[in-house]
């Protein structure tokens, strides 16, 4: 191997990269909750909606779950301006992440709705629960528990997926590595540091999720 490592030059960039990691977290967090909101309505629509609603949601889900995120990102990036909608790269990517994960979460959450035991609700009904009380005491806690593990996994997956934003000039973690690698040529060192940061972020996020899962939902999620 002829490569001479020069870590010093790369380590100077750590604060700059950490700033990028912060944007990565932002992007994944906002993207996740936007996607979760879309997914919730998508799942509700698919479970309780009429045939037209179901069909529209299906098209949306099929489109986004069967095209690479990168392709839909380009699609939005170049498509929207044609309609006179100009978004910053950050917001374009955010929109793409939200739509993309919304499609996946529609499917994940629908599984949650479907898995509510009808018999549990019947028992509740005979015990005098109103529909609203059934929702509050039986349906929502059940769905939250069932969905906790798959949504946690999805969130971790999303954090990594945000790296794609670099291609569009968003200065999140990978984007900032792009920038500095081009200037300093310390690519391997910088990517090593970035990889370490990604690992740290996902381990941290997983651990927090595991703790929340155990305490709040009695879900035994395993991380490693």
């Amino acid at each position: 191997m002829n490569y001479t490592f020069q870590w010093g030059e790369a380590f100077i960039e750590v604060p700059y990269l950490l700033g990028g990691a912060w944007i990565t977290l932002h992007l994944s967090f906002i993207g996740f909750w936007s996607g979760a909101t879309i997914g919730l309505f998508g799942a509700l629509g698919k479970t309780y909606g009429g045939p037209v609603t179901v069909k529209l949601i299906n098209w949306y889900v099929i489109f986004f779950t069967n095209t690479p995120g990168l392709v839909t990102a380009f699609f939005i990036f170049f498509g929207l301006p044609e309609f006179g909608i100009l978004l910053s790269p950050y917001h374009t990517i955010l929109l793409n992440i939200a739509l993309n994960s919304g499609a996946y979460m529609t499917e994940i959450m629908r599984g949650g709705f479907v898995s509510v035991h009808k018999t549990e609700l019947e028992a509740a009904e005979t015990m005098g629960f109103t529909l609203l009380q059934q929702l509050r005491y039986v349906i929502v806690p059940h769905i939250a528990k069932v969905l906790f593990a798959p949504l946690s996994n999805w969130y971790i997956w999303m954090i990594l997926g945000t790296a794609m934003a670099a291609i569009f000039g968003v200065e999140e973690l990978t984007g900032r590595v792009f920038n500095r690698a081009a200037e300093t040529f310390r690519s391997i060192e910088l990517y090593t540091i970035a990889a370490g940061m990604y690992v740290a972020i996902t381990i941290l996020a997983s651990s927090i999720l595991v703790v929340i899962g155990r305490w709040a939902f009695r879900v035994k999620v395993k991380v490693f």
Partner: peptide, 25 residues
């Protein structure tokens, strides 16, 4: 009524299964 398939609330422990309706409903 008690059903063939117990129909307990899966997200509650035994005690809460028993207390929820008397208390909340």
């Amino acid at each position: 009524i008690v059903f063939q398939q117990f129909n307990l609330f899966q997200n509650m422990d035994a005690l809460r299964n028993v207390t929820i309706a008397p208390v909340k409903i």
